[in-house]
C-alpha cells in the first residue's frame, strides 16, 4: 500500500504530462510573377480548403512570392487559431476575406524569389513551434532572381513537408519537357537534401492528402 500510492501518483502525473505539440503549421507561398498571377483563383480555393482542414491552435500563413520574398511584408494573411471553436470560426472567416481581397488586388511581380520565401516559411513555422510543419508552394517553380540577390544557402527542412501545388508547364517546357522535369528534380533534391519531404500535387481536385 505504501508503494501503491506513489506509483499511482506517478502514473497520474505521467499521464498528465505534456506530449509535445500536436498542432499543425502551414505556410503557403503564392507565386504572383508574370502570367502565373492568373492562377490565383485556384490558390484561393486551396487556401479555403486548407482553412477547412485546420482546427484549434493550428497556424496558417499565406505569403506572396515576389522579387525578394524573405520578408514579413510579403505575408498576406496569417493566423494562429484560438483553442475555442467559436473564435476559430471567426478567425477563419476573417482570413478567407483577407485572402479574397488580396486575390482581387494583387499585382504581378517581375521576379520570383522562391528560396527566400521558403526560408521565410521555415523561420515563421519554427518560431510558432507547431508539431507538424508544411510548406505549400503554389508556383511553376521557375525561380527568377533579380541581380544581386544571393540565394545559395543551405536550408534546414528537418521535419518539414514541402508540397508543390499546380506546377504548370511553361511554353519552353512544352518545347523541351526535360526543363520541367529538371526543375522538379532540382527542387526535390534541394528539399530532400535539407532533410524535408517533397511531394507534388497538380490535380487540385485531389487535395485529400494535402494535410
Amino acid at each position: 500500500m505504501k508503494r501503491l500510492v506513489p506509483l499511482m501518483l506517478c502514473t497520474v502525473l505521467a499521464a498528465c504530462g505534456q506530449q509535445g505539440p500536436q498542432n499543425t503549421g502551414v505556410y503557403m507561398l503564392l507565386d504572383t510573377s508574370g502570367t502565373y498571377r492568373e492562377e490565383l483563383d485556384k490558390a484561393e480555393q486551396i487556401i479555403r480548403y486548407t482553412l477547412s482542414r485546420l482546427g484549434e491552435t493550428d497556424t496558417f500563413a499565406v505569403a506572396r512570392i515576389d522579387t525578394g520574398s524573405f520578408s514579413e511584408k510579403d505575408i498576406v494573411a496569417k493566423a494562429s487559431f484560438d483553442d475555442r471553436p467559436s473564435a476559430v470560426n471567426r478567425q477563419k472567416r476573417a482570413f478567407a476575406q483577407r485572402v479574397a481581397d488580396f486575390v482581387e488586388s494583387a499585382n504581378s511581380s517581375p521576379y520570383t524569389d522562391i528560396s527566400g520565401g521558403i526560408l521565410q516559411a521555415v523561420e515563421y513555422l519554427n518560431e510558432k513551434g507547431t508539431g507538424n510543419k508544411t510548406i505549400l508552394i503554389f508556383s511553376d517553380l521557375k525561380e527568377d532572381l533579380e541581380a544581386g540577390y544571393v540565394r545559395e544557402f543551405e536550408l534546414d527542412l528537418d521535419g518539414f513537408r514541402v508540397i508543390a501545388l499546380n506546377v504548370t508547364k511553361l511554353r519552353s517546357d512544352n518545347i523541351d519537357p526535360r526543363e520541367y522535369l529538371g526543375r522538379l528534380e532540382s527542387w526535390q533534391g534541394k528539399v530532400e537534401k535539407a532533410g524535408g519531404e517533397w511531394s507534388v500535387i497538380n490535380d487540385l481536385d485531389g487535395l485529400d492528402g494535402l494535410l
Binding site: 499521464a15 500536436q22 498542432n23 484549434e56 483553442d83 475555442r84
Partner: peptide, 16 residues
C-alpha cells in the same frame, strides 16, 4: 462535450 471546448479549450489534453 462540444460546447465544453468553449470553456476549457478544445485542444488541451489530460492523460491523452
Amino acid at each position: 462535450a462540444r460546447p465544453m471546448a468553449e470553456m476549457v479549450g478544445g485542444t488541451s489534453l489530460i492523460g491523452g
